[in-house]
Design a protein around this nucleic acid. Sequence first.
DNA 1: GCAAATTAATGATTTATTCAAG
DNA 2: CTTGAATAAATCATTAATTTGC
Lengths: 230, 230
Amino acid sequence: MINNQLLLLCSPRSSRWNPTPEQLLALEELYRRGIKTPTAQQIRQVTALLRHFGKIEGKNVFYWFQNHRARERQKRRRELMSSMSQSHSNEQRQQSWTNNLISSIQNKESAGGLRNLSLEGEQQNKWTLSNCTILSDQESSSVLQERMSMVESNSSKQPGVQSYSATPTSQPPCANPTVTLIYTTPLDCHHYYDYGMVLTAPHICKGEETRETRTLELFPLESDNLNGFL
Amino acid sequence: MINNQLLLLCSPRSSRWNPTPEQLLALEELYRRGIKTPTAQQIRQVTALLRHFGKIEGKNVFYWFQNHRARERQKRRRELMSSMSQSHSNEQRQQSWTNNLISSIQNKESAGGLRNLSLEGEQQNKWTLSNCTILSDQESSSVLQERMSMVESNSSKQPGVQSYSATPTSQPPCANPTVTLIYTTPLDCHHYYDYGMVLTAPHICKGEETRETRTLELFPLESDNLNGFL
DNA sequence: GCAAATTAATGATTTATTCAAG
DNA sequence: CTTGAATAAATCATTAATTTGC
């Protein structure tokens, strides 16, 4: 049947492939050097070359890489998972940490009823603070008043003072639910970053000088947040 | 400044965030489980929980997801592209056996100009043989005609004879470039496995009996392939 | 020592996800 | 929104390592 340029192989009865040491070494080396998911063509070539060292088919190479990827991931996951359960108190199951994380994240009510506010500036140096979330009245609310000194912008816009404030919609147990942010420079000179709780003052590039970014971050106080802060 | 339910963090003027392995694992796990673009609330919770394992801010989480989405897309795109285009230059570096292996694998031209054919059955027992590769005309092409006897399927489909053939697009030095595959049983009764060169006839489970898998493998003939066969 | 029995590794298969093209 | 291709995850199955009793 081997009459020309195509070779036909019919896998012999049963018995799975067992890589020779040379084959194994080569496959590992390839993997280490970056061939993680070989193309069909690469599989063909590897198969042809490794046939030097013993019986081997393309599907063996294919499966080897597939399994190797999976088990490397697995190994890495297990290691990290166990290191997590160590630092986390005494967990019984390894998956529970992640499961707890997932469920607590996916449980929309677990954060205690947040409220959304939206602020928007109206000058030419316009900026937006959207989805500014503060705790519900049920939790005791707070006043945050912070002055954030900003380095001078390289934009031609004039530095100035802008002040915005917001109050939650319901008042009763809410002592003085005002949030005031005062900036001496508009935030839009390069960029701002806002997904509901963080504003970033842009880093400043003036001539060749680059100063670093400052971040002002607000988030609800949970017991977990207190490590090292209280 | 920590006077109530809000916590204020000012990022120290230090280098950028580097996720700890635990943080990275958790983020990947979340992503894998479907949190692709977390809400502000989710980011807050993830940040709080991951602070167990090291310094982290909300913006780090935000940016991580943003980058991860982008890079996953990128990866997909790149894979798709590379599977379509095939052109690269030669490597000359040859330091070891593995290096030769690597470079010969990464050299897309070394397989001698493959051509892709695609066959598709049209009956109800449809099956597909995609990317069936045969050598270019430059090499002498060949006729392969093989009958593959299959064990009886446990599916209710009737075993039958199906024949498909294909011819390359250019002829001149190409004697009789026909590939014909005849199956006595459709290949889709359980699965087929195809990454460009291998079709696997499913193993058959009939009652308690299990018969083994048969593999029909086609690949281009290279000098390396001949060991022990010619 | 050495097999039968048991366990650990790993090859092979099936199932579920994901991405994106139609 | 559906569907096909690709691949990751989960699982099955076989081989090698090893333990164990004699």
